[in-house]
Design a binder for these strands. Structure first.
Length: 954
RNA sequence: GGGCGCGUAGCUCAGCGGGAGAGCACCUCGUUGACAUCGAGGGGGUCACAGGUUCGAUCCCUGUCGCGCCCA
């Protein structure tokens, strides 16, 4: 029994349990041992996360694909899990400690802090998994993984060690993006360039050997900078080699103001004569471009900041080297000043000495940390790097060769663009939460990288014994006693970038580095579904790691979807307050409605604009489906075993079989091409505008009529088509369809595991032509017969039902236009009807009368006088309404139609009389135009006839 | 500055070489037993602009304007 009202919350809770209990989504179900696998790995949400609309879209699309392929018989593995999200999680826990006024991270110390994080993870880390379940995600939940699981951690260590051994991971001292708030290095990708209004300061650097005179430009050179405070670390001034203004100064020196350091004037292409003064200060330790200039010219790198981006001058050897007497005073005065305070102080001092020429307003891009929001400081430190350039080569080749394809294809260009300009990937983070780098250092700083601590210690002690730094006896003691080696051998404190472990996700989740059956069966995966924002963070890196370690690209297709925005097209953000909470709309309208709304909007080249109202609309669609199924139930439309829709005898039933087959093809083909919106919209139309609006309406007289073959066939067909609808809709709206599947008949199994009606391989056009004949060749191989229902067509049925639909629509339309009250039943006269119409009309008498609100239907040679005359498929259908119709309105209506027919004839004539058109256009187009002309001429004749009748009646 | 994408009904979008479409919104009418979370009907568009290619352009090409995003 179907409940009277559709109540999604109730259904969704129940269905979740049924799926879970039956382990419907488990990969490797025994009966599918021989089936082809289909694998998707979920983009692991942050363990700190909660479901937002982006997740809802991303996972809805993945679920549609998984359910679709599961129904097509594949052995589906949708691999779920979460990401430890280094920085984000550490921040969450630190904030919690602060709120609870508990000891902070540093007070706790590393071990106890990590314990706290794990504890937090155990308590609150599973939130998003449950939210994904509410969305209906059909992951194999028994296989849930976490990037810091024992197994995945082993994969991380193994990858690190191997890449290190191969020279693809190395330690280097270079500039990094330093976050002075979080006190860690971050990768280029975690930096956001934000345009800010600032200033361009023009500073005078006095030339060596001349007495500085603010009024004499010959005594100084002007440099322009956006960061005057870094001048303390300047080690050169650069001018463009082609800049004649400065040619005579190249090779000379300036004395750095305030500091007194003697630095050279060098010629380098980097200096742009058009910008600023054409001369730039060079600070290799605090600017990426300057760093490169410094390398080219072998300049000293003078770092003047500490970790917190405050000036660190006292005791700074690099800074103090070669400075004159008295330099200490300035160092002491400025030491410890924050970079922004330092800027003010330095500018003031320069100004006092006439060293500031002018200040210009200047808008420029300033790097910010994407997590902390702090202004990023280029900072000179030792960090670990991955040689991304080398790893990128196979990753580029895989996409070039088509081994991996992006959908839509244009993303490949973005991918290439980045991959071909890729920079070394900084993977070390000065955090605690994450995979600690498997590197150990000896007293001289020598690095020992190994998969286990024992191995590393063993190597290290062996090395130092050999070097006679320690005795073999000491070595043995240190190997056995952790305390004895403390301080002698120390582990690298840093952890790896979170994306390092995510890069391994497609194979680490399957058990690699162990040789598991899962790796064998489910790698490489089939499709990766993700947003464009993590192509670089994640997709590119999975490609690199997958190809390097597995020798195969991790997925054959990368489907990139767009963003979900609010109804006005604005990005959803907490600060704007325009966030739509997916769980909120699920509460209000159901997960199915949200999923269907997202799927219907998921076009390739547009962001999705979503509003609660849109979800409501799709809930209404679910209600419509619900009620259609109730209607079927009330009319005893039960599943009839062995029923073959292609053998139906009733025209109406053949028609819906034809339409169902068409919908099946449309949905299948659209999903095969990741056109989620086309697939979902095809179903929306089919269910509402075909099945409900016409099929069920036209079937009503039969269903409520007398017992007989026609009625039983119709009952069976209503049920069959409903079942097909439930199947086709299941990937989009799993809950309601599974519920309706369960309650409408005794079923062998779950809808989630029921077979899709169209097989994976498309038929050739020749095969299709064969299938469309009404009498299939008895010699056809059985596999073709399996396609029959989905390939079925019946043009004759379509023509007949089309006529009924057109007739009813035309009558309804004119009745509404003429304001004929619904209660008024009018007679219908088919004037000069063709043999076909004479046959059809009695067959559809009941339906047409009911739907068009007619008293009766009769035939006549010509339309009765004083009737409304409609043109339906070239024949006149007349409504004799003497006394009711407004003659002038009717004349106007017919005139309008006449004008339309005339316009059509004229346009076609223009074409056909154009010799070039007839000569150049394809034959079928010319033929089509001729047919159009004939039809329009015939139509015109009928309209003229109708006008004549009208005139006679006046 | 480089790249990608988008300008089609009031809104959101589909169509991407041969007669302008859908959903929502709007207006009119309607509770006859699946459904008012509904049904029937209707109005509404120089397909941004300008050139070009073509027998034919909303669709292809070029340019202009406007909007969005990514990378420097």
């Amino acid at each position: 029994m179907i409940e009277k009202n559709y109540q999604p919350a109730d259904i969704e809770a129940r269905m979740s349990l049924i799926w879970e209990d039956s382990r419907a989504f488990s990969a490797g179900r025994p009966e599918r041992r021989d089936a082809k696998p289909f694998t998707i790995v979920i983009p692991p949400p942050n363990v700190t996360g909660s479901l937002h609309m982006g997740h809802a879209l991303n996972n809805t699309l993945q679920d549609i694909l998984c359910r679709f392929e599961r129904m097509r018989g594949r052995d589906v593995l949708w691999q779920p899990g979460t990401d430890h999200a280094g920085i984000a999680t550490q921040m969450v826990v630190e904030r919690q400690l602060l709120e609870r006024q508990q000891p902070g991270r540093r007070e706790l110390g590393r071990a106890r802090f990590l314990e706290r994080v794990w504890q937090w993870k155990a308590e609150s880390g599973g939130v998003i998994i449950n939210q994904l379940k509410r969305l209906g995600a059909s992951c194999d939940w028994s296989r849930e993984r976490f990037t810091m699981d024992e197994g995945l951690s082993r994969a991380v260590v193994k990858v690190f060690v191997e890449l290190h051994r191969q020279g693809l991971i190395y330690k280097d001292k270079r500039l990094v993006n330093w976050d002075p708030k979080l006190l860690t290095a971050i990768s280029d990708l975690e930096v956001q360039q934000i345009e800010l209004r600032g200033s361009l300061w023009y500073l005078r650097y006095p030339l060596e050997g001349k007495t500085f005179n603010p009024d004499d430009p010959a005594t100084f050179i002007v440099v322009a900078t956006t960061r005057p405070e870094t001048m303390l670390g300047d080690s050169a001034v650069a001018v463009n080699p082609d800049d004649e203004r400065y040619a005579h100064l190249v090779g000379k020196h300036v004395i750095l103001p305030l500091v007194g350091r003697r630095i050279p004037i060098i010629a380098d292409q980097y200096s742009d004569p058009e910008k600023g003064s054409g001369a730039v200060k060079v600070t290799p330790a605090h600017d990426f471009n300057d760093f490169e200039v410094g390398r080219r010219h072998n300049l000293p790198q003078i770092s003047v900041f500490n970790q917190e981006a405050a000036l660190a001058l006292v005791g700074n050897e690099d800074y103090l080297r070669g400075l004159p007497e008295g330099a200490m005073q300035l160092a002491e005065e400025l030491h410890g000043a924050d970079r922004f305070a330092a800027r003010k102080q330095i500018v003031t001092r320069l100004e006092d000495f006439g060293l500031l020429e002018r200040i210009e307003p200047n808008t420029h891009m300033v790097p910010h940390g994407d997590r902390s929001g702090a202004v990023i400081e280029p900072y000179l430190t030792d960090q670990w790097y991955v040689d991304a350039k080398t790893l990128a080569q196979p990753a580029v080749a895989a996409v070039r060769s088509g081994a991996t394809t992006f959908v839509p294809k244009n993303w490949e260009k973005t991918y290439f663009e980045w991959m071909e300009n890729i920079q070394p990937w900084c993977i070390s983070r000065q955090l605690w939460w994450g995979h600690q780098i498997p590197a150990w250092y000896g007293p001289d700083g020598k690095v020992f990288v190994a998969e286990t601590e024992e191995e590393a210690i063993g190597n290290a002690l062996g090395y130092y014994v050999e070097q006679e730094v320690i005795t073999p006896e000491q070595g043995r003691e240190m190997a056995l006693d952790r305390n004895k080696r403390a301080g002698f051998i120390t582990r690298d404190e840093d952890v790896l970038d979170t994306w390092f472990s995510s890069a391994l996700w497609p194979f680490s989740t399957l058990g690699w580095p162990d040789e598991t059956p899962e790796v064998e069966r489910y790698y490489p995966t089939n499709v990766l579904v993700t947003g464009w924002d993590i192509i670089f963070f994640w997709v590119a890196r999975m490609m690199m790691m997958g190809l390097h370690f597995m020798k195969q690209a991790p997925f054959s297709t990368v489907y990139i979807h767009r963003l979900v925005r609010d109804e006005k097209g604005a990005k959803m953000s907490k600060s704007k307050g325009n966030v739509i909470d997916p769980l909120g709309v699920i509460d209000d309208f159901g997960a199915d409605a949200l999923r269907f709304a997202l799927a219907r909007g998921a076009a390739h080249s547009h962001d999705i604009k979503l509003s609660p109202q849109l979800v409501e609309t799709n809930r209404n669609f679910a209600t419509k489906l619900w009620n259609a199924c109730r209607f079927a139930e009330m009319n005893a439309c039960g599943v009839s075993t062995g029923f073959d829709p292609t053998k139906a005898r009733q025209t109406l039933n053949r028609w819906i079989a034809h339409e169902t087959a068409r919908a099946t093809r449309e949905v299948t083909e659209a999903l095969e091409e990741y056109r989620f919106n086309d697939a979902a919209n095809a179903m929306y139309r089919f269910v509402w505008n075909v099945y409900c609006d016409w099929y069920l309406e036209l079937a009503k007289p039969v269903l409520t009529g007398e017992e007989g073959d026609a009625r039983s066939e119709t009952r069976a067909m209503v049920a069959w088509a409903r079942d097909e609808i439930l199947k086709l809709l299941h990937p989009f709206m799993p809950f309601i369809t599974e519920e309706l599947w369960t309650v409408t008949a005794r079923r062998d199994g779950l809808l989630a595991l029921a077979p899709w009606s169209r097989k994976a391989s498309a038929l050739t056009p020749e095969q299709l032509a064969l299938m469309s004949t009404n009498s299939p060749d008895p010699l056809l191989p059985p596999i073709w017969l399996a396609f029959e229902a989905a390939e079925f067509t019946d043009e004759a049925a379509e023509a007949e039902i089309g006529w009924v639909v057109d007739l009813v629509t035309a009558i309804r339309s004119v009745r509404a236009e003429m304001n004929i009250p619904p209660a008024t039943l009018t007679p219908l006269v088919l004037a000069g009807a063709s043999a076909e119409a004479r046959e059809r009309a009695p067959r559809w008498n009941d339906v047409i009368r009911r739907m068009a609100r007619l008293a009766d239907i009769s035939f006549a040679d010509r339309a009765p006088e004083g009737s409304l005359q409609l043109l339906v498929r070239g024949e006149i259908a007349a409504l004799p309404l003497k006394g009711v119709i407004d003659f002038s309105a009717e004349k106007a209506r017919l005139d309008k139609e006449l004008a339309k027919a005339d316009a059509d004839i004229k346009r076609v004539d223009a074409k056909l009389s154009n010799e070039k058109f007839v000569a150049n256009a394809p034959d079928e187009i010319v033929e089509e135009e001729k047919e159009k002309r004939e039809a329009a001429v015939a139509r015109k004749a009928k309209i003229l006839e109708a006008l004549q009748r009208l005139k006679n009646a006046e």
